[in-house]
Nucleic acid binder design. Structure first.
Lengths: 133, 133
DNA sequence: CGTGAAAATAGGCCCAC
DNA sequence: GTGGGCCTATTTTCACG
C-alpha cells in the first residue's frame, strides 16, 4: 500500500510542496514516470489532501498570535460556541478539548491592542467563558 | 508594499500552493508576467516562507493526535525541556506559554496504546511535569 | 502593467522488462 | 507492476512597448 518510497515522497513534499515530479524522482531514486504515477495516486486517494503556501503572518500585518483557553459557562452552548467561532476569520484554529478548559483557540491580530479590542468586542459576545491565557 | 493584489495571490496560494503563475494570473486579474514578478518578490522577500503538502496523518499510520499540557516541576529546566522536546519527531509543535501550564505540546502517535507508551517512555524522561490533557 | 517571443521544463504515453 | 525514453503542451522567463 504505502511503502518506503511513498514515505520518502511525502516527506520531501512536506518540506517543499512545489517540487516537480521530475525533481522528486531524482531524490527518491525513481525516474519520472513511476514517480509521477505514485504522486497522482497519493493525491487522488486522499493521502495528500492538498498543498498550501506558508505565509509569514508578521509580514502581512498580523504580528500578534495568542492562544486562548476558553471554559464555557454553560456546556449546553458547546455547539453554538463552535459554530460562532467558525465564522471568525481571525480564529485560525479551534480545538475542542475534553476537560478543563473546553476549547483552545488560536487567534491572530495585528498587535496587542488589536487583540484586546478583538477580545472585548468579539469573544465575549459568544456564549463563552473566562480567558485563561 | 503589499497591496490588494498581493493579498489575493497569498490567499489563493494558501488554498492551493501548487498553482502555476499562469493560473494565478487569471484569478487575480493580471497577466502572467506581472503576476510572476510579484510571486517571485513575495518568495524572495520572505513573505512566503515555503510550500508544503498537507498529508492526512491517519493515512500514514498516525491516527492519534493529542494535546499535552506540561507544567514543569522546576522552571530552571525550561531551556533543557525545550531542547529535549525539539529532538522528538512525534512532537509536531511545542508552544511555550506564560503562566500555567508552561508548555503546550502537540503529539502524534499511531493510536492510543502507542501514545501511552510514548508518554510513559519518552515524555516522563524529560525534566518535565504533570500532564493535564 | 501588458504583449509576445524564446527557452526550459513538466506531464502523459507507449514500449520493454 | 516498475523503469526508460520520446513527444507535446505548459510554464517560466525574457525582451520590449
Amino acid at each position: 500500500m504505502i511503502d518506503a518510497i511513498d514515505r520518502a515522497i511525502l516527506r520531501r513534499l512536506q518540506e517543499d510542496g512545489r517540487m516537480t515530479a521530475t525533481a522528486l524522482a531524482g531524490e527518491v531514486g525513481l525516474t519520472v514516470a513511476p514517480c509521477h504515477r505514485r504522486l497522482k495516486e497519493l493525491e487522488s486517494s486522499g493521502v495528500i489532501r492538498g498543498y498550501s503556501a506558508d505565509v509569514d503572518p508578521a509580514r502581512v500585518g498580523l504580528g500578534f498570535e495568542a492562544l486562548v483557553f476558553v471554559t464555557l459557562r454553560d456546556r449546553q452552548n458547546m455547539k453554538a460556541f463552535e459554530a460562532g467561532v467558525a465564522g471568525i476569520g481571525q480564529v485560525i484554529e479551534a480545538q475542542r478539548l475534553f476537560g478543563e478548559p473546553d476549547f483552545l483557540l488560536r487567534v491572530m491580530a495585528e498587535d496587542l491592542p488589536a487583540y484586546q479590542r478583538f477580545y472585548d468586542d468579539v469573544l465575549v459576545g459568544l456564549p463563552g467563558g473566562r480567558k485563561v491565557d
